[in-house]
């Protein structure tokens, strides 16, 4: 159920399966926070119909494992799952999921926020948006 705790994949993921897999780790978990990133249909003043993702696979995997390990060490949390799709997604589709389980909600919220913010800085993944002006690499993300 749910696959590895940290992974990239082409196929879509199930939030329910990932949350269930996280809950199965410990009955001590009292709060679960999820972040789901989806493809917007508008970016930087342009319509976006699809986003293609590319990764530096070996480094991305190490960087994502590092994020999980650092989050588990830094925050008072019990388990973390991080899944990022590497494929072409249409507007509205799912891109990234982070699930954090903790005894109490505050740590889970803090850790989840930190993981998505830090993922954008540390994990070598790039997006190319399909717009009416053509396909455009997004070089920097807020």
């Amino acid at each position: 159920m749910g696959g590895a705790t940290v992974r990239t994949q082409e196929e879509d993921f199930s939030i329910e399966e990932e949350v269930d897999a996280l809950r199965a780790v410990s009955r001590r978990i009292g709060g679960i926070v999820t972040f789901l990133g989806c493809a917007r249909d508008f970016s930087e003043g342009r319509d976006v119909s699809a986003i293609a993702f590319e990764q530096y696979a070996s480094m991305a995997e190490t960087a994502m494992e590092g994020l999980r390990a650092e989050a588990l060490e830094t925050f008072d949390i019990i388990e973390v799952r991080i899944i990022h799709r590497i494929t072409t997604v249409n507007a509205g589709e799912q891109i990234v999921l982070i699930v954090v389980g903790a005894e109490h909600r505050a740590s889970a919220f803090d850790a989840c926020r930190w993981i998505i913010d830090t993922l954008k800085q540390r994990v070598p993944i790039w997006k190319r948006e399909t717009t009416p002006d053509g396909k455009i690499w997004e070089s920097q993300h807020p």
């Binding site: 990133g37 990764q55 990234v96 994990v123 993944i125 070089s139 920097q140 993300h141």
Partner: peptide, 10 residues
């Protein structure tokens, strides 16, 4: 050696 644009995942 990898030469990479700024990351834009997530």
């Amino acid at each position: 050696v990898a030469m990479m644009p700024p990351f834009s995942g997530g």
